[in-house]
Design a protein around this nucleic acid. Structure first.
Lengths: 354, 354
DNA sequence: ATGAAAGCGCTAACAG
DNA sequence: CTGTTAGCGCTTTCAT
């Protein structure tokens, strides 16, 4: 009649286990397990007694162990370039809110667009047996595809996808977005439009560039490679890009800039203003994303909006659905970007003063 | 000579376990475990063979199971009001960066300052046996103290503490911060200074209020309760607070506002501008935190800076140290806030036009 | 240098 | 309704 030789818990200092509860309640661990998980038949009387003991002993079932028995840990991994970027923090908020509704927690990982670090995280998350992974990837090669497949975990892409890779993807039509931004400028009368962009190996960048080129072509405006300027990701990068643009002598100078994310746009605006140009009188600027920054910057930034929060919600919904169906999912949700016109764009007044 | 009756892995489709490796390498699972964890003595030859097999079979040790054997999951829980608030996303970035250096992952939880949800998360994290918890709490009652103690997990406070609760705390001297902001305004010549603040039950708010009051008193300026206006947390709340201030007839009207966080300050600036007042000519505004928003808003916001990123790094360092020493830690790190003067504050020109 | 075996805390048949 | 028991995948003595 001694089911197991275990260390006792006289002080309550050590972790209390299901055995402690069983013993204190005078039942078997099976019964305790049943009341905890609300399954099987247990008399109301025992159930209550067990629950009382659980409370008295301040017992918390160990999910980590139950996960051993085939259950999952209800945890998702979320890999993004940088949580301190408002674009991603908004996505994460949506994802976490949605995860919570389903009982999942989310592990955040900042990759800084470093594919090496991305891989490290992926491996580590696999060892921790997360149920699924949401990835805003910096990779686009076929190598990474194999890596992902060998992971054996459902992976969903958010915002950035690996072209041709079949799995859940929730993205925006970046080609269209690039087109909309450029077209807006063209419609205003601009013909000399520069493009500031994140590194072009990132899919979203090349797509937005395509949209930009398409709009130009459609309007019969020549595409000038020297006006396409890839930089980094942040405000400082936009600032430097703008400085460089002003420094280089161009004839004519651009009267408008399409910056392929809001931070680049804001950095550019700061540089332009410091150089004595006013926005939008001297130069129009369009951003991309529609982060909170757009409404705060002066002038408020015209931008191409992505539904960030909803995107976070959508991937998580799709991913969890796939997880619970034991599948890996393959929906490709392409959201429509929307042009939001604010005060950073206007008709070109005159050539940029030199 | 059959160590265990296990399902085989002919297709490689099922998860490969340490047994599969052991069998394929012709050694015992103990040996495999040794090479994985780099402990005990294993001949170079076997080690290499095992490693090769591991690679061939694409094996990933199951951390979740090893955690059963007394190890930890190397995971931290991080509870904050809202990740989409730049103040917190910066802290989280610091925390995650630091966690990664130590090999820890972090689970983010958005509480929205809801103490109920905070508790739910706490309980859930305990069941998942996180190694430690970092908390920017919305609670300040003694009840919560018991809850936290009964958790049996090291808890570290970031930014907001529960007064008198012994544990790791990394905070800023909010009293001093409130004083600095108000003092700055007074030094500029303002005597009619309103205070916009988060709800006063939050410790940081009441401390900043104390600082505000102290500065007033020191300058012999009467404290006017009707000028202390608690609101919510976001930009819209600041906007509404400012609207209300303008609406209420005050004689004299405040010539300056100390908004106890940047978002409130920015909302206030927007409202003031829309009402036709210019900043800082008509009204000076000081914020708190020094988020990225300060440099973007127009005019750039004078604020009281907190070292957000470093605070994230510091808590995690302290917490992990405590975890690894099996202790719970009790350091109270109080950082000095620093006034950052930008262009949203100036000498009062004249009474606010009515 | 290597392996057998005893857990870790819990779930899930399967018997009573 | 309740209890027995066999794992889950890995770590860790303790022999060999």
């Amino acid at each position: 009649m001694k089911p197991r030789e275990r260390q006792k818990n006289p002080t309550g200092s050590e972790k209390v286990t299901i055995y402690d509860i069983a013993e204190a309640a005078g039942v078997s661990i099976a019964t305790v397990s049943k009341v905890i998980n609300n399954r099987g038949r247990v008399s109301e009387q025992t159930r209550e007694r067990v629950l009382r003991i659980i409370r008295e002993l301040n017992y918390a079932p160990n999910r980590i162990t139950s996960a051993l028995g085939g259950k999952s840990m209800y945890t998702l991994g979320l890999l993004i370039p940088d949580i301190s970027n408002p674009f991603y923090s908004e996505i994460v908020r949506g994802a976490e809110d949605c995860g919570r509704k389903w009982g999942y927690n989310v592990l955040i990982c900042n990759t800084d667009n470093d594919t090496r670090r991305e891989m490290d995280y992926l491996l580590s998350l696999r060892e921790k047996r997360v149920d699924g992974i949401i990835l805003a990837t910096a990779s686009n090669t076929d190598t990474r595809r194999e890596d992902l497949e060998s992971l054996g975990i459902p992976v969903a892409f958010i915002s950035r996808e690996i072209p041709g890779f079949e799995s859940i993807r929730v993205i925006v039509d970046n080609f269209r977005g690039g087109y909309l931004a450029t077209r807006h400028l063209i419609d205003l009368g601009h013909r000399n439009i520069a493009l500031f962009t994140e590194p072009l190996n990132i899919v979203t960048s090349s797509e937005r560039l395509r949209g930009y080129a398409e709009a130009l072509q459609e309007a019969g405006i020549p595409y000038r490679p020297e006006w396409v300027r890839p930089g980094g990701f942040g405000v400082e990068s936009g600032y430097r890009l703008a400085e460089a643009l002003l420094r280089d002598s161009h004839d004519p100078m651009p009267t408008a800039v399409f910056a392929a994310n809001d931070q680049l746009a804001i950095g550019a605006i700061q540089a332009f203003k410091e150089a004595g140009h006013s926005i939008p009188e001297d130069i129009s600027v369009v951003g991309f994303d529609n982060t909170i920054l757009c409404t705060i910057v002066d002038p408020p930034l015209t931008t191409v909006a992505q539904p960030m929060y909803d995107m976070g919600v959508k991937v998580v919904n799709l991913l969890i659905e796939a997880i619970q169906n034991e599948g890996s999912g393959s929906e490709r949700i392409v959201l429509e970007p929307k042009l939001v016109v604010r005060r950073s764009t206007a008709k070109p007044k005159s050539p940029l003063p030199r």
